[in-house]
């Protein structure tokens, strides 16, 4: 029940801060999501959604780190061989 999944914001309406809502696309499904907890989120950004509420905006730069880390491991690996 703690499942929280990433989706892409495709529209935002109800700009009143508590009722900030928007539509979020998860693969092929579009859902209405409460955006009150991501006040700065913009259309086209990815958010993590849990029980109808977006709880964070995914940071692309941070998201890339794991892949550069992987590259480093690979380089070390290859250097060692």
């Amino acid at each position: 029940m703690c499942l929280a999944v990433p989706g892409k914001i495709i529209s935002i309406h109800d700009e009143d801060s508590l009722m900030r809502r928007g539509q979020v696309r998860f693969g092929g499904i579009i859902k209405e999501v409460n955006l009150a907890y991501v006040p700065l989120a913009q259309v086209n950004e990815y958010v993590i959604v849990h029980v109808g509420f977006a709880i964070s905006v995914l940071n692309e730069e941070e998201a890339q780190k794991i892949f550069s880390y992987l590259q480093e491991i690979q380089d070390v690996d290859e250097a060692g061989q």
């Binding site: 907890y37 991501v38 006040p39 993590i48 964070s56 940071n59 941070e62």
Partner: peptide, 18 residues
């Protein structure tokens, strides 16, 4: 913090306030 694409040190301040 492995999950830095979602987790900030201070968490989600608007959520914590409510």
């Amino acid at each position: 913090n492995q999950y830095s694409r979602s987790v900030k040190k201070e968490g989600n301040l608007s959520a914590r306030r409510v």
